[in-house]
């Protein structure tokens, strides 16, 4: 079967480091919509280190409950990057992609909306075209089966950390957005 895969293509050479993507993402996902802005709630962040000329927009991917072993260092065009600079995970090793109040993971949802947007808000607001939206149709074998076990493990960890109530409240909030 065919499935549409939504992608944000990132051109780090075009990033001017303005973080408009962070501002608009956080506003779009605010409740009510656009009522506040706060880059720390954004599902896209610009990893930046101006004096090293490093500007890498990264949008939030999967949550991971433990950090990986990968602490590799990459040198590209004479500039040194940590492996984490490109990583999309919401991971305990860093503050990126975690809600600053609840510490719960944030994940990019491509700005799902009703009616659907033409492209995610971060792409729309990046008029320097460092972010380009792309839909790719790809052949997949079957709808991937859900893996209840993994979700259960994750939820258990969250309940342990925050208590049942916070997790339930958050789930219900996420369900609405």
């Amino acid at each position: 079967m065919k499935k549409v895969k939504k992608l944000i293509k990132i051109d780090v050479d075009k990033c001017n480091g303005c973080r408009a993507c962070e501002a608009i993402c956080s506003a779009f996902h605010a409740e009510p919509k656009y009522s506040s802005s706060n880059p720390d709630r954004s599902r896209i962040r610009v990893v930046h280190d101006p004096l090293r000329d490093i500007f890498v927009p990264v949008y939030a991917g999967e949550y991971t409950d433990s950090e990986c072993n990968g602490k590799n260092v990459y040198t590209v065009d004479g500039k040194t990057y940590d492996e984490c600079d490109f990583c999309r995970a919401s991971c305990p090793s860093r503050k990126l992609f975690r809600d600053p109040d609840s510490n719960l993971p944030l994940k990019c949802d491509m700005c799902e909306d009703e009616p659907p947007l033409k492209e995610p808000k971060c792409v729309e607001w990046c008029i320097n075209d460092a972010l380009i939206y792309e839909e790719v149709e790809e052949e997949v074998e079957e709808e991937e089966p859900t893996r209840p076990l993994e979700i259960e493990v994750g939820l258990e960890a969250l309940v342990k950390q925050h208590g049942v109530k916070v997790v339930m409240d958050t789930l219900s909030r996420l369900g609405k957005s």
Binding site: D13, N16, G17, C18, R19, A20, A23, P50, L51, D53, F55, C126, I127, N128
Partner: peptide, 17 residues
């Protein structure tokens, strides 16, 4: 000039690395 850069939430590139 290695890169043209901006201030917060502004697409204009008035500065540079």
């Amino acid at each position: 000039v290695e890169r043209l850069i901006s201030c917060y939430n502004c697409p204009m590139k008035c500065g540079a690395v």
